[in-house]
Amino acid sequence: MALRTPVRAETPAGGRTARRDRRPRPSAAGARIWTWLTLPGTVWMSVFFIASLLLVAAISFGTTDELGDPRFGTNLGNLKALADPAYRDVMVRSLGYALLTSVICLLIAYPVAYAVALHAGRFKNALIAAIVVPFFANYLVRMYGWSVLLADDGPVLRVLRAVGLAGAHTKILNTGFGVIAGLVYGFVVFMIIPLYAAMERMDTSLIEAGRDLYGGPLRTFLFVTVPATRQGAGAGVVLVFLPAMGDFVSAQFMGGPNQIMIGNLIQDKFFEGQNWPLGSALTMALMAVLLIAMFGYLRRARKDEAEATR
């Protein structure tokens, strides 16, 4: 690739010797160019991302003026309000939904990743592409299609009723299960990809060995495959948990007013309730939960790595 564009053509022959004489310096000059390349992106991210996050933290101590605009302050009221049962319940529910979503995604992704990575033969790449592509379809459109599918008289419930798995009044939409179904549909791909990668990397002779030692399929799976792919599963749980915890679309489209999550509260404080300081405090609470989860994951991952290299 590099050979396609000859450098020589661009350099005047006369300048060549002069430049080569200066060769002892390129490390200094080089360091400078890398700094100049790093700076714009770093400054951009510092201003528009890091500074704005700090602003959220600052506003969460603020108050609103008569017009409803946020004012800086040293008000602890917003953070105290988080302990209010109404908000606390929503946070506990969000945590529960996000955790359940992660578990269900694990239960779906293990068989799928296993079948695709180890038993799909030459269709492996096509299948994994077929899993990834719908994820790039618009999230709202997908979620809307899913809600149509799971509607009270929608195809899924009709099939379940026909085979006797659902009663005449069984509902999925407007229940907590509907919200979780939405979150799973939205984010399951984040579980499949790292698990698939881990299975690809796994030494399949381990499975053979498990079988040879008279382990049944289930035992071999639980005691050989699962431990060997634990890191992929860990990464998947984080990748599903993070967006699930902050989502507000699934609760809106699939859950209705009684199933709101913390994302819905934040949205409400910014768009309907016009209480930005309280919204910021809720955002900080969300961020805190996620940072704790992330921190736990990284510690665990580091420990795993240390054990693996020992």
């Binding site: 991210m45 959220v56 506003i59 902050g246 910014f270 930005w276």
Partner: peptide, 22 residues
């Protein structure tokens, strides 16, 4: 800092950007 956005839910980035612009 380039890793932080990858672990931040979009709603947090959205709230932060809105506050900054305002």
């Amino acid at each position: 800092i380039m890793m932080v956005p990858l672990i931040t839910p979009e709603i947090v980035t959205g709230v932060a950007s809105l506050l900054l612009f305002k």
